[in-house]
Amino acid sequence: MSQKPPVQAAVEARRSYSKVTDEAPGQAELERMIASLVSLPDHSGLRPWRFIALRGAARDRLGHGLAAAAKTDPEKYVSKARRAPLVIAIVVSPRPSDKVPLWEQEAVASGAAHTLALLLHEAGWGVIWRTGELTRKKAVRKALGIKKPEYLLGWLYVGGIPPRNKTPKPRKPLQVERHLTTLVSGPEARR
């Protein structure tokens, strides 16, 4: 039996971890992972994305921004922002282009975030991508220093994987026929 290619094995092993420990990748490790995103599919090489790393008390800025957007007491949202030792804001940073529409640039930013999450997971870190109705509110952008035309896609919460979560439950198999259609040409296409 042949072994799965490493990328396929990594994709199949990836999980979201809503609870993580207080450990997190250091700045140098994070920078190496982000540098490897150089090969992402990106029409015209615009690189219309960036990340903001929040550690320590900097996470409180996110919590206060979420609370201001929700028009509520910050305690709940500051607590949420501190669920992981590293929170990475995913920012769409559109570039002017006659060839590459905004939706395509957002798709590239989403691909960058997903690939970073996969790299973090493969390196042994627990990751979950969080979003919510407050993600694109002005108060949240302002708290993180994000100015239009940039906007948020959410946050990667990153930390150590708790020992009890090292062996995740198996997932239900994907029903490929629901997610893949093959168009045919020639005589069989006319039936």
Rank of each mutant, 00 (worst) to 15 (best):
T181A: 14
V184M: 05
I88K: 00
A9W: 01
A189V: 11
I161Y: 15
I161R: 11
E133N: 03
S2E: 03
A10F: 01
D22P: 02
R32A: 05
H121V: 10
G186A: 09
R190I: 13
M1T: 08
R14K: 15
A68Y: 06
E104L: 08
P94H: 02
E150N: 01
R190G: 10
W103M: 11
A123D: 01
P101E: 11
K4V: 14
M33H: 05
A107D: 05
A10L: 01
R15V: 03
S79F: 15
P173S: 07
R141I: 03
A57E: 15
M33F: 02
I128S: 13
V92N: 00
A81G: 14
R83I: 00
Y151L: 11
K19L: 14
R50S: 03
D98F: 14
T72H: 01
V158L: 09
R136I: 00
T135C: 14
K172V: 13
V38W: 03
I34Y: 04
G160Y: 08
K99P: 07
K99L: 12
A113Y: 04
S93E: 04
M1K: 05
P163N: 11
A10K: 01
K99R: 08
L183G: 00
L119I: 11
A58I: 03
E23Y: 00
H179W: 11
A89S: 12
H64A: 13
L66F: 04
T167R: 10
A24S: 13
K80E: 14
E12K: 03
T72C: 06
L37I: 00
R95Y: 01
V92F: 00
L118H: 13
G160M: 07
A28W: 01
L119T: 10
Y77G: 04
P187Y: 10
A13T: 02
V140C: 13
W49S: 00
E23G: 03
L134P: 12
Q8C: 07
S44K: 15
S93Q: 05
S2F: 02
I34L: 09
Q8K: 03
Q27D: 13
F51L: 08
R171M: 11
G124E: 04
A112D: 00
R164F: 12
T135Q: 09
T115W: 01
R82Q: 12
A68R: 14
P187I: 06
P162S: 07
P162F: 01
L40C: 06
W103P: 01
L156W: 10
S97Q: 09
A35P: 04
P162L: 03
S16K: 14
Y77T: 06
K138H: 12
E12Y: 04
G124H: 08
G145H: 07
Q105C: 10
Q3G: 06
V20Q: 08
P41R: 11
K4C: 10
